[in-house]
Computed example of a mutant assay.
Amino acid sequence: MAPKSIISLFSLLPITAVLALNPSCAPGGNFDFTVWSLQLPTGSDGSVDTIKSKALQGCSGYTGPTFYTDKTNGELILTAPGNPDLTGCATTSGSEHCRTELREVNKSGQNTNWPPTGTNTNTVRLKVVKADDGTHGTAIGQVFAAEASKPLAEMYYSTKGDIVVGVKQDADSDQVVIKLGNVPVGTYFTYIMSYSNNVLSISINGNKTTLSTFDWDSPNCYFKTGNYNQGKTAVTSEVHIQSINVVHS
């Protein structure tokens, strides 16, 4: 067995190689959902349908109309409907948009959060097949402040392939929007969201941007990842994920 220091080192490295995925399995046969639950665009406003971690796990785990396996390559496909006034989709409390989005939980399946000390990273390899037509596009990843119940950092992908992040100056302020890069629609890329050692940063294909946390006082946070549609019209957004890796140490 490799020493713990070596294991820790490799766990922090970006994912560049993707393990073979099984197209015959539900998403839980290809992805580790022991640290995720799933919010769906169904249910009722303020009380969307949520699939617990245990139900997501394994080759026979949950699959549905907006969360399923690509039968050609085993990737995870997440779709989300557009403007709820036009599509009738259900929104979470405090949101005007619909989502098919993973929310971080602990190994017992309960909602969790963590202090921004040590290492806290979420590394995702994906492609956006269809972005929504919202101001900045589809939200594909978040660092969410638990107590404030607001996103500290929300990363978006637009119809033009622009990737930006909105960072709130505090819980009640509007987002300050910072461009991170551009990846053509339908092209794979890897992002790393990190709030480690009290430093917030995002890397796109290895290009790292360190972000100010303004007036936030090192809030406990959790990760969200997936497809959070910000659209003005009824256009359905579509995200394909090859790998997800969360590290806390």
Rank of each mutant, 00 (worst) to 15 (best):
F31I: 07
P84L: 12
E96F: 03
K232R: 12
T92G: 12
S218E: 11
F33G: 00
L12C: 09
G226C: 10
F67D: 01
A145I: 05
K4Q: 15
Y157L: 08
P41I: 02
E147V: 13
D45S: 15
M155I: 09
S237K: 01
K232Y: 11
A234L: 04
S203D: 13
T209L: 08
G82S: 09
Y156A: 07
Y157D: 02
L86W: 03
A2K: 14
V143H: 02
V246E: 06
I163E: 06
M1K: 12
Q110R: 13
E238A: 07
S8H: 11
V247H: 00
S249F: 14
N182E: 13
H97S: 11
I51E: 00
R99I: 13
G118L: 10
W36F: 13
Y222D: 01
N22T: 11
I163G: 01
G88D: 15
K160V: 10
V199A: 04
N182A: 09
A171R: 01
Y188F: 11
T112C: 04
T121I: 12
K179P: 00
Q169S: 14
S44K: 14
T66P: 05
T119F: 14
N111I: 07
V235K: 10
D217F: 06
K150N: 08
S243C: 03
Q57S: 02
K54P: 02
D172Y: 14
L13I: 15
S53T: 01
S8K: 07
T159Q: 07
W36A: 07
D49V: 15
M155P: 03
C25Y: 11
V239I: 15
D162Y: 07
G134W: 07
F214V: 08
A2T: 04
V167M: 14
L21S: 06
L38A: 10
N113S: 09
H240A: 07
S196F: 02
N245E: 11
N229V: 12
